[in-house]
């Protein structure tokens, strides 16, 4: 249920309402927007008297929210959420570029790529340390050493780092990591999501390849319900009958998720297509569709990459792409 308050509601009256709701075990999430203040009510709201709340002089309107996701719902939070990572802002049409190799392979490799993508306009460095591979015999990532090398690259370039966490037990290793990525395969690892909800670290939540928007938003809800508001949604392609591309990149998710939710939406054209030659086109399409950011795999030597070489673009290609993205962003900017 959401309660939309009139502008500048009287504090004493609002406090009385909040105390009363609390006494009924209703959790209240206030959002002070630019135009209005909204109270998001979570809990057993079936017995809450809508007529009584509507009749309060400080209340403008009361609506029941049918969707099971509440905190992630745009009805609860009409303004876009902007997730801050150091000086970088993700959300509200930011078109933040997150770039780097699929996996961290060596100090030289990660620092070299970090410098190159930074020079081309990337604002966050990505790199896998713990790799969830389909096969247990595949390269599993450099693990804790990979994180150490990412931190060295962060020190060398000043770029915040984004890397995947696979299990809640790894959290202490991620203390200095700026954005915790939850991979598509872990999107419904609810115990991991609950643990991330207890932190305040930005979480990049990838959509599972066979999960609906509602599934994705319910996973985001797990993190938000724990008190962590810093969730970034990421579309990385879904599984369809088409096998030419690795997955099917579903760009309609950008306007759809933005209508349903206030959370930033970023696109991963690398995993979605699996083909480096398709990445620039789909990145441009995502930018044109209003994505808040892109996460792109960039490798200095794609043919020899230890993981996902075929979908990685070179630093030169990334540089060229970034110039196109800037032009598209300027073309669709509304202000």
């Amino acid at each position: 249920m959401i309660v939309i308050l009139k502008q500048n509601p009287d504090k004493a009256q609002l406090d009385s309402l909040l105390e009363w709701l609390k006494a009924q075990n209703i959790e209240v999430h206030p959002t002070v927007g630019s135009h209005q203040t909204i109270l998001g009510l979570i809990g057993d709201t079936s017995r809450v008297d809508v007529d009584l709340i509507s009749a309060l002089d400080i209340v403008d309107n009361v609506k029941r929210v049918q969707e099971p996701y509440k905190n992630a719902n745009r009805k609860f939070h009409p303004d876009d959420t902007v997730v801050r990572v150091g000086d970088v802002e993700i959300g509200g049409g930011s078109l933040t570029l997150i770039a780097g190799p699929c996996s961290v392979e060596s100090e030289e490799q990660i620092i070299g790529i970090a410098k190159a993508v930074k020079a081309s306009g990337a604002q966050v460095l990505r790199g896998g340390a713990f790799k969830p591979r389909t096969s247990p015999y595949s390269f599993q990532g450099m693990q804790i050493d990979g994180i150490r090398l990412l931190l060295k690259a962060k020190e060398a370039t000043g770029l915040p780092i984004c890397t995947e966490i696979m299990d809640a037990s790894q959290l202490p290793l991620f203390d200095d990591v700026d954005i915790l990525q939850v991979g598509a395969r872990n999107m419904q690892n609810f115990s991991l999501l609950k643990s991330l909800g207890k932190t305040r670290k930005p979480v990049l939540l990838k959509r599972g390849m066979a999960c609906s928007y509602q599934d994705l938003l319910m996973s985001a809800e797990y993190i938000l319900a724990g008190g962590n508001p810093n969730v970034i949604l990421c579309e990385r392609g879904i599984r369809t009958f088409e096998t030419y591309t690795r997955k099917t990149l579903y760009l309609a998710c950008i306007p759809s998720l933005k209508a349903l939710s206030h959370l930033p939406v970023i696109i991963d054209p690398s995993h979605a297509t699996g083909k480096s030659q398709l990445v620039p086109s789909m990145a441009c399409a995502a930018a044109a569709a209003g994505a808040d950011g892109l996460i792109i795999e960039v490798h200095n030597d794609p043919p020899h990459a230890k993981c996902d070489g075929p979908q990685s673009i070179t630093p030169e290609a990334f540089d060229k792409l970034n110039r196109k993205l800037t032009a598209i962003r300027n073309a669709i900017r509304e202000d």
């Binding site: 009256q13 009385s16 309402l17 009749a55 309060l56 002089d57």
Partner: peptide, 9 residues
């Protein structure tokens, strides 16, 4: 004081 729009409330 809490103000209401109608007597029933």
């Amino acid at each position: 004081f809490l103000y209401f729009k109608n007597f029933g409330a």
